[in-house]
């Protein structure tokens, strides 16, 4: 009798568990919960086994959730004359705007004079990276954010090897690859896009890193479908308004500052703040903003700052 009761209860629990498992999978992939589906499918597509997503959704449907390629950027024009000239800007002010959204928090720094922006490279190049705060301290800067990508095998890179075109104070540190470039020319114009290697010299870039994807071009958002497919994380981005002001955005993720932002969220913040052009920078545990001696947007890793290869620093007046 007792055995029969035990079997009945076990059977009931097993049935409930099976029901919950099957129905939850069905609800996630075919139910009305679009944001949940985007998060789950995005996570599968950016995992080591993206093929699992094909078990549930058609190729057509999956396209909607495909992560934006890092090298997705507008084709750049080799016509350097077409770029804006901000040589006459002498406004030395910097504004900092707190970003306080439901799922992420961070700060947007607006540097009015774009010529104050420089790329700083780790002083232990090809060996190990350097903390953003150290780069800022070393160069006597007033502010800094992490910048381009670096060799990072399985998340254990030392930050010593920048990836893609890297130019610091007019000196080319790493030659161009196929990655989109994010750089400033002598007149303070932020140049973002995919350029032919042979055209890059004609842009007269004095500062540059490589990362992506590009988020805004000519004042228009480039993510037309979904949320960019990179999931939610801490993110950094750079943009420029039509008046030349540079927008440096850093948001936290996976920590006390929320669960992080999607690429679409970042694009939205940039557009709302008047960006004519903008690109995503290295994110995750690398993302941080430093100003006047303290981390105003600390890294999301509880163990502190991570050494990186490059940083955008804002020099003193």
């Amino acid at each position: 009798m007792r055995m029969k009761k035990w079997l009945k209860r076990t059977g009931l629990l097993f049935s409930l568990f099976t029901y919950l498992l099957v129905s939850s999978v069905l609800l996630v992939f075919y139910g009305p919960f679009e944001h949940l589906r985007a998060m789950v499918v995005g996570s599968i597509l950016t995992s080591r086994h993206p093929q699992y997503a094909e078990y549930f959704l058609s190729e057509e449907k999956l396209k909607q959730y495909q992560p934006l390629a890092m090298d997705a950027a507008a084709a750049g024009s080799a016509d350097a004359e077409a770029l804006n000239n901000y040589s006459d800007i002498h406004d030395n002010s910097i504004d900092v705007i707190p970003i306080d959204e439901k799922l992420f928090t961070g700060k947007l720094m607006i540097v009015k004079d774009p010529k104050r922006l420089h790329v700083e490279v780790t002083q232990h190049l090809n060996d190990v990276g350097e903390l953003v705060s150290d780069m800022a301290d070393r160069t006597n800067a007033v502010a800094a954010v992490n910048a381009g990508g670096f060799l990072d095998v399985s998340g254990h890179g030392t930050g010593g090897i920048p990836l893609g075109l890297t130019i610091s104070h007019g000196k080319t540190v790493v030659s161009p690859t196929n990655a989109p470039i994010i750089g400033f020319n002598q007149a303070g114009a932020l140049v973002i896009g995919n350029y032919n290697k042979e055209d890059i010299a004609s842009l007269h870039l004095t500062e540059a890193v490589s990362f992506g994807p590009q988020l805004v071009d000519k004042g228009q958002g480039l993510i037309t479908n979904g949320d960019g497919g990179w999931g939610r994380s801490a993110r950094s981005a750079i943009g420029q308004r039509s008046d030349g002001a540079v927008l440096l955005l850093v948001v936290q993720g996976r920590g006390t500052g929320g669960i992080g932002a999607t690429l679409k969220d970042i694009e939205q913040v940039m557009l709302e703040n008047g960006a004519m052009t903008a690109a995503n920078l290295d994110g995750g545990f690398s993302s941080e903003m430093w100003q006047d001696g303290s981390l105003t947007v600390p890294p999301s890793n509880p163990l502190g700052e991570r050494p990186v290869a490059t940083a955008f620093v804002v020099t003193k007046n």
């Binding site: 944001h35 949940l36 504004d95 439901k102």
Partner: peptide, 27 residues
Amino acid sequence: LQMTGFYALEQYLTPSGETSSFSAVAV
């Protein structure tokens, strides 16, 4: 219970449509 859980999760993941009211802070 399951549907409530899913609904709450979806609500949590839905970005707020409003723009935050910003206050500029000069350095």
